[in-house]
């Protein structure tokens, strides 16, 4: 933890989904986490562990039943619509699927300008300049603005989605599996881009992923989520070298190593303990 006041604090967050037939699913149970200004926090866990729900609650797209979200000193757990609208400039998001995250019938320029609309005193030319600047920053050619999403590859679209997230100069970006849908070589490029933007713009990132090796590439601090609860939290390096919780060990063992001999040895010891609580078996 840092000494500086955190930008984002999630306190004792609990979310329960009500399923059909009166069944309930506890997606999050008493989750506490914080992100300092300019810090990247990795959030790992398997699918269904609740990591995406945390992102949704911070964005106000899922309601918290218990606990609170403190952003920049303000409680935004039950922010009004107007407050949310203003928060949109400070908290942005990058999604997993680069094919679904851009409006296919609007040009890239229109999509990128969207977060800027309503910002006081911005003329059309000023918006165009901001769009051109940000495209250059994310390494896209200058004519991108007049083209449409269908004309770009997944990696390029993800760059555009990142451009949209940073154009309004937010304080926090929630990256929800931003590279999981991309090829390995493209993954590295996009991660490097995120790292670079984070340094240059002093952004805070909440980096959600199921892949520990990806998280290791971007964040110094990592939180491991399992069945809606935080099971381990600490410096990414020590988490890798010396995992404490059996689930973290299992997650680490699940990542393939690019060395057949070591991978084989790994496979033998992978029989991780069964973590399912007894009553659910």
């Amino acid at each position: 933890m840092n000494d500086v006041a955190p930008l984002l604090m999630v306190k004792d967050l609990g979310v329960t989904y009500h399923l059909k037939g009166g069944r309930r699913f506890e997606a999050l149970k008493g989750v506490n986490l914080s992100v300092a200004p300019g810090e990247t926090v990795g959030l790992v866990g398997e699918s269904g562990s609740g990591k995406t729900t945390i992102g949704r609650v911070i964005l106000g797209q899922t309601m918290a039943q218990t606990g609170s979200i403190i952003f920049n000193g303000d409680d935004i757990t039950h922010a009004s619509r107007a407050r949310r609208r203003a928060l949109g400039r400070d908290i942005q998001v990058v999604f997993q699927d680069p094919y679904g995250s851009l409006n296919p019938v609007r040009s890239i320029g229109q999509t990128l300008a969207e977060p800027l609309i309503g910002e006081a005193g911005l003329t059309r030319t000023a918006i165009a300049t901001r769009v051109a600047d940000i495209l250059q920053k994310v390494g896209m050619p200058a004519d991108t603005a007049s083209r449409y999403p269908a004309q770009f590859s997944g990696g390029q679209r993800q760059r555009i989605a990142i451009a949209r997230a940073v154009i309004a100069r937010p304080k926090l970006i929630i990256c929800d599996e931003p590279v999981s849908a991309l090829d390995l070589s493209v993954q590295a490029q996009v991660l490097n881009l995120l790292n670079q933007l984070q340094r240059e713009m002093g952004l805070s990132l909440l980096f959600i992923s199921h892949d520990l090796t990806v998280v290791r590439h971007v964040s110094r601090r990592t939180i491991v989520l399992y069945r809606g609860e935080i099971v381990e939290e600490g410096a990414t390096e020590s988490l890798h070298e010396n995992p404490q919780h059996p689930y973290t060990k299992a997650l680490l063992a699940a990542a393939p190593i690019p060395d057949p001999a070591r991978q084989r040895a790994r496979r033998e010891q992978r029989h991780a303990p069964d973590l399912t609580p007894a009553q659910d078996r």
């Binding site: 964005l59 106000g60 797209q61 949310r84 609208r85 203003a86 928060l87 949109g88 400039r89 908290i91 942005q92 998001v93 999604f95 997993q96 699927d97 679904g100 995250s101 851009l102 409006n103 999509t111 969207e114 977060p115 989605a161 949209r164 309004a168």
Partner: peptide
């Protein structure tokens, strides 16, 4: 249900 709608909502569009 697409992500771009979520992104627009997140950026505070009405």
């Amino acid at each position: 249900g697409r992500d771009f709608i979520r992104a627009l909502r997140a950026s505070g569009l009405s």
